[in-house]
Design a binder for these strands. Structure first.
Lengths: 136, 136
DNA sequence: ATTGGTGCAAATCCTTTGCAATAGC
DNA sequence: GCTATTGCAAAGGATTTGCACCAAT
């Protein structure tokens, strides 16, 4: 795994402290994080950061493929940009789980043929339902 | 197809003018509509409505299964509550297309076994990508 | 030195909520 | 008549933007 600084510079982005830390954070967490959660986590480490920068950084990381977004109820959630994968999202609390399924690639291709919608590089399929905690 | 009034009363909801019109609107449009679009459409017909009522109505219709929500970039989009189906969402403009695919039900079941996430009655799978207009 | 990034503050977009008035049953 | 539903106004959460300063290359 290349260093955060290299990952950034390879895509024409400056390797600032904020960006390196956010990249680290997304890579180290199993769960997906909202912008607010990223902000809180960075501040807890003593980093001087502004919410606006967190939003801008998450956006630019997503654009260059170092992160990915998952839409759902509440705020958007962000995950790292490593291997493409699919997601399961709780319709109530917005929690996101990764789905390491290859099988769905066929379904995705099928959909592309039908609709002309070009699949994302990042996880293309989203599964909606109620997570364990919310279905009690 | 039962009348809007009946659909509503069967679920314990009062059949108000707003609700009937919103229900009609969702049923008559092929595309999915944002709350703002629903509001505009109603006002154009001369109906006296408030945005807050549109939001409340769309929420309650979704709760009782007469409508369904699709999360994506920008505002939430709402569609009718008829047969369960899947969706394709443009990551850029948020446009929603229906996918009348039965085949994906297998994928959904597979995911449920793996994650314990219980599938929605409404379309459970979301496909993300760029629509024709946005990929130019 | 240049230019991309950042903090700060303000603005915007989308949505929810409290409450008195109204309309469905 | 009782109570769900509405309009209005105000608040709230999430995100974006303008701009002067700062820092990575």
């Amino acid at each position: 795994m290349p260093s955060p600084s290299l990952l950034l510079r390879d895509r024409g982005l400056r390797a600032t402290s904020n960006r390196r830390q956010i990249l680290d954070l997304l890579g180290s967490r199993a769960s997906h994080l909202s912008a607010a959660e990223v902000y809180d986590a960075l501040r807890r480490t003593g980093e001087r950061v502004d919410p606006a920068t967190v939003y801008r950084t998450l956006e630019v990381l997503t654009e260059v493929g170092l992160a990915h977004v998952v839409d759902g109820p509440g705020p958007k959630r962000y995950g790292d940009g490593s291997e493409p994968h699919h997601h399961a999202v709780c319709r109530q609390c917005g929690a996101v789980k990764d789905l390491p399924l290859r099988g769905l690639a066929d379904a995705a291709r099928h959909i592309e043929e039908l609709t002309g919608l070009r699949p994302d590089a990042s996880g293309a399929l989203l599964f909606h339902g109620l997570c364990g905690a919310c279905s009690l």
